[in-house]
Nucleic acid binder design. Structure first.
Lengths: 363, 363
DNA sequence: ATGAAAGCGCTAACAG
DNA sequence: CTGTTAGCGCTTTCAT
């Protein structure tokens, strides 16, 4: 007890000394906590980590001291000694993002999930290239990587695979180099959309993609969607065409209107692959005096939120971004907890199709 | 030279030892670089920081060793000893974002600008609340903060002001607590848009806001836009009304159509405050058989990219997000370089209005 | 112009 | 159950 008192006095002196010199509170260290609680510095560390048994009395005193000083452990010191940073690097494609608005929910969910396990997230852009990954790994800035917006021939994969750190790919490249990947089952989503149209007596399907700047063949989830829809249409004996816009934006839709409507009046269904395209197709119908759900159908791959926010509400299959982000983090935490990379792909299955006003019942 | 040789041998032994034990390359430290270059460890540090004169010959050898080992300094060790983390915390509002798609360019620009000065960016959501800021500061995770999406009564401000770390606010709160802030001059932007309509012979102006979920009075840049437009309209002796939608989405516009068109045929100009609203107004005009640029005008506060991507291209004043993000980072780096917080507000002025097809020339 | 050495604040092995 | 101690890899004196 006498010793504890002495240590406490020393700590007070230190705090006051600093206060006098800087005229402002210094950020407390675990030594300050220890002194205030009258224990050794390592005991503070053990109280925080829970890695050894601590008497109730000691734990209480230490916790009180921690709260009184609002102590937080120095992240750098922890990383240096403990060889883990509690930081996850999230590598996203921002400059040429496929869907800027769509990116936010992913990022948000990943940050939330990370925080739930006391990880912070550093955000990196693909523009930094593979060297960016190497830099973060060698500088020990992070413990693991999540790579978003994976292209089939993504140049980050090989580098990431050589890093000896946990990596999860969101999206499926041609060569995974042994890394774990997660994605939506967009093939299955396409099948559900085609089935909906088949089941309701449609004859002709037009699949409308996002346009010239997003080449379907560069991204696995897009080509899967196309292939799935096409094959299902064959199976269900429906006429099937893809209309690729030759121009971006609304103009692209307007210019393609003739092709989109070539089979008008004959049990026509449009499949929109993105929220934006869905909106435009509704707009086009409105402009042409066609009522979705009566004159033709519009079904869409978009979230429930988007589908119900549109007018009229659109029949959709939902690729919930949050589910995919959560799956990615589940896999990542397994790896961080010591699991061996399995090099496997895990898919998020689409929820059941939700029929809304834009499905026409022809049968 | 003999000593250097010996040190080098020791380092080799260390590297080999590790290699044998782990069966994989250990990440090299500055000691390894020093040994390989035949200099002391501190010399490596000085070569990297440039904080003392180094002979050309020594520098060359050290650089060669650095490259050979692809050495990167341990971020945690640096932070611990050097008392700076080279990390900037970016605090964004994601869950209830005003404009999810619009957020990306800000984030991208901030990450890029940070990287240009060798800072990384940790991404935090406002959901973590003020304690999130305290945590990052006390753990020494970051050296500075950028707070986006500032509300007038933002609860992060007071905490941030007590952190004794550089902070830049993007957006203007009621009480800045002495912190520096940057924002767009949306008041000026509104004036330019009203002037355009006044100069081209319009009589009636309808300002269309984003809708019920974004209360204009919560955000300074929105209320400034409204006030600026209203006052300018008075000055130019134009009839001026604000139409707030009572429902979200396209439905909100459709329901408000009567109010929007009440003064139809009489030199009517619509001012759209967001890209999304601009798109909807074009849609509404199309639907009503009105041709923007002939029957009425649509002018918009949106980026050039948005304005020209629409059909027809829209007259706009551009609040370029990248400019604002760059300004924020300029201020932040001044603070990081030791400048005292001035508690001032710096505004990004809008570029000149660009007239496109949606301006009707009534005069 | 360079080297030796002292820690930064923490974790974990070692020693009761 | 708790304390003492040895570093992690770096920056920065102090010494030459």
């Amino acid at each position: 007890v006498a010793a504890a008192g002495q240590v406490a006095r020393v700590a007070m002196a230190r705090l006051q000394g600093v206060k006098q010199r800087n005229n402002r509170r210094a950020i407390p260290t675990s030594r300050d906590v220890a002194a205030l609680a009258g224990v050794s510095q390592s005991t503070v560390s053990y109280v925080m980590s829970g890695k050894r048994a601590i008497s109730e009395e000691t734990r209480r005193r230490v916790q009180a001291a921690i709260e009184q000083l609002t102590y937080q452990p120095h992240a750098g010191a922890r990383a240096l000694r403990g060889r883990r940073t509690n930081v996850i690097a999230l590598v996203v494609r921002m400059r040429e993002s496929l869907d800027p608005a769509g990116t936010i929910p992913y990022v948000e969910t990943i940050v939330e999930t990370a925080r739930a396990r006391d990880y912070d997230v550093v955000l990196v852009t693909t523009d930094e290239g593979p060297e960016g990954l190497t830099r973060l790994a060698k500088r020990r800035v992070c413990d693991a990587f999540v790579l978003m917006d994976i292209r089939k021939d993504d140049d980050r994969i090989e580098t990431a695979a050589g890093l000896e750190l946990p990596v999860v790919l969101m999206g499926i490249p041609e060569d995974r180099h042994g890394l774990d990947a997660v994605d939506f089952n967009t093939r299955r989503a396409a099948e559900l959309l085609v089935d909906e149209l088949a089941d309701t007596g449609h004859r002709h399907i037009v699949l409308v993609g996002a346009g010239p700047n997003t080449p379907p063949r560069d991204f696995h989830f897009i080509s899967e969607f196309y292939d799935g829809a096409r094959q299902r249409a064959v199976l269900r004996e429906l006429d099937f065409v893809v209309v690729e816009r030759e121009e971006e934006g609304w103009t692209g839709i307007e210019r393609a209107a003739d092709r989109l409507l070539a089979r008008r009046a004959d049990r026509l269904g449009w499949i929109a692959r993105t929220p934006q395209v869905t909106d435009w197709l509704l707009q086009l119908a409105r402009l042409k005096g066609l009522i979705p759900g009566r004159d033709l159908s519009i079904v869409s791959l978009c979230t429930k939120t988007t589908a119900t926010a549109l007018t009229p509400p659109v029949t959709n299959v939902s690729p919930e971004p949050r589910d995919l982000a959560r799956l990615a983090m589940t896999v990542l935490f397994e790896l961080l907890d010591g699991a061996e990379p399995s090099g496997s792909v895990r898919l998020v299955e689409p929820a059941a199709l939700e029929r809304r006003e834009t499905t026409a019942l022809f049968s």
